[in-house]
Nucleic acid binder design. Structure first.
Length: 481
RNA sequence: GGCCUGAUGGCGGAGUGGUUACGCAGCGGACUGCAAAUCCGUGCACCCGAGUUCGAUUCUCGGUCAGGCCUCCA
């Protein structure tokens, strides 16, 4: 059983072979913490969480190192801090906590490392120093710039040869740049902004260098997998790659087979965008939906399902209907689990190859979800027929669900939704009374009680083992259940 | 202007050189005191043109449309 991943550099799917199966490394570009992140920002969080879980399943929990950075030095952070009249740490701590809270609600495991730029400053300065020493960077007017001419393969990842980019460049070129494509490694801080010491004068790092330094510090180069949104391919990842290689830590400049390229990351993975009405969701377009707000209206698992409903490289349209369908699918699965609650899943939880297969094929979550639903239907049938296979089916279902980060809640709790303990016991009493009326064939009373439950927004589902209930779906126009 | 993706039924969404998964919605049936839930069955699609091929939705080329990147945007 082997994993295949689509590598942006090779522009094709390649079998995944870690440099060291006892130490598999993955790095994903994380948030700039100056505000709440929108739901599109969480697509890579959820997608790479599935890959993280899958890798842990394949190589062992302790064998996978997953680092996701936190950019806590940035113009927007400075602006927010001065607006509120507080230190930047107040801002970054606040929004990092919110981000991690939202990620957790979406069922994402915490990465094994979450380095912050402010805590990586020594490594950043050291790496810039090596770039200058290697003549791959130069200081000019208080800035240090990466010399793109020093790296012959610049543009290879994104498929943009340097000369073409100059032709299409629309940006005004700063006078201190030797070449228009050169990018900032270090720059002076403006008055009042946070500042760090460096051999080139006080200032702060550019964005790209932070990721390379963190990777080197947290994971060591080269890494197995580097992930992020498709928009980061250029310039961010192109620049990371260039500076990372020229800083000379890739000892022996290992050549990747078939890539003809010294290694920085052996596999580059990029997720497609989440779109709002056919357009990219972005703050500048003003069409954002904050994960923080969505999580107040829907269980995180519903949002997670909707985020994984399309293959990670495909664009994903974000609509109310997608959320409703996600809710529907999960209700179905939890319904099956509720009916199978007396079945002991037992066993080792080992996954058979054919169950993991969709995920092994470039993390094909829609195909895996289809399998999840199929297993659930089989389990439901087996439970109804008292088939002894039910235990094995439940085990298979739960094992696949765990790798995908689904179905970890108790079915009863899932359907209770927003009901508190008080309401829950009241509903349970009504259900019991109605069951009694039904046994007595007092249909009028049974229907009266059902009407009462409906008024409480509770749906009743009769079954052989007695009635179960759930809080009804929020209506489509977004009302709270 | 340059570069890069994508185009599958009413909607969502996989996949394939030769009967096009599946979900939702629709329709029919089973079950049910009635409903709901569940189960079974069923109708509906591969952007256009050319090429390669015995055969193309799948491969190649061209076109159209849509989206993205070229601005420290997941």
């Amino acid at each position: 059983m082997s994993l295949t991943l689509y590598d942006t550099m090779a522009r094709t799917k390649r079998p995944f072979v870690p440099a060291d199966p006892r130490r598999v490394t993955m790095y994903v570009c994380g948030p700039t913490v100056y505000n709440y992140s929108h739901i599109g920002n969480f697509r890579p969080v959820v997608v790479f969480d599935v890959l993280f879980r899958l890798l842990r399943r394949l190589y062992g929990e302790g064998a996978v190192l997953y680092a996701a950075n936190v950019t806590d030095v940035d113009d927007k952070i400075n602006a927010k801090a001065s607006e509120e009249g507080v230190p930047i740490k107040t801002i970054t701590d606040r929004y990092l906590a919110a981000y991690n809270g939202d990620a957790e609600a979406l069922g994402a495991l915490l990465p094994t490392a979450q380095p912050r730029a402010t805590e990586t400053m020594d490594a950043i300065v050291a790496m810039i120093g090596r770039l200058v020493h290697n003549a791959a960077a130069y200081a000019a007017e208080g800035h240090v710039l990466f010399d793109t001419q020093a790296y012959g393969d610049y543009g290879k990842l994104s498929g943009r040869p340097l000369d073409e980019m100059i032709a299409g460049a629309r940006v005004e070129v700063a006078p201190y740049k030797r070449h228009p494509a050169d990018f900032v490694l270090w720059k002076p801080s403006k008055p009042g902004e946070p500042v760090w010491e460096s051999p080139w004068g006080p200032g702060r790092p550019g964005w790209h260098i932070e990721c390379s330094a963190m990777i080197e510090q947290e994971l060591g180069l080269p890494i197995d997998i580097h992930g992020g949104g498709i928009d980061l391919v250029f310039p961010h990842h192109e620049n990371e790659l260039a500076q990372g290689l020229c800083a000379g830590h890739a000892d022996g400049a290992r050549q990747d087979e078939g890539q003809g390229h010294a290694a920085y990351a052996h596999y580059w993975l990029h997720n497609g965008f989440l779109n709002m009405a056919d357009e990219k969701m972005s703050k500048s377009l003003g069409n954002v939906a904050l994960a923080h707000d969505l999580l107040k209206q829907q269980p995180g698992e519903v949002i997670r399902w909707a985020l994984l409903a399309a293959h990670y490289r495909q664009p994903l349209a974000w609509t109310d209907d997608a959320l409703a369908q996600a809710r529907n699918a999960l209700d179905h699965l939890y319904g099956v689990l509720g009916r199978a609650r007396h079945i002991d899943a037992g066993g080792s939880g080992a996954l058979l190859e054919d169950q993991l297969e969709p995920l092994l094929d470039d993390v094909n979550t829609p195909a895996a979800m289809y399998l999840l639903k199929k297993l659930a239907t089989e389990l439901d049938t087996a439970v109804r027929k008292a088939d002894p296979n039910a235990s094995a089916l439940k085990q298979d279902l739960m094992a696949l669900a765990e790798v995908m980060g689904f179905l970890q809640a108790d079915p009863r709790v899932w359907f209770q939704g927003s009901a508190d303990a008080d309401l829950t016991s009241r509903i349970d009493a009504l259900i019991a009374a109605r069951d009694a009326a039904r046994v007595a064939k007092d249909w009028a009373e049974a229907d009266r009680i059902r009407a009462e439950l409906t008024a409480l927004n509770v749906e009743v589902m009769d079954g052989p083992a007695g009635a179960t209930w759930r809080i009804a779906l929020a209506s489509k126009n977004g009302e709270q259940a």
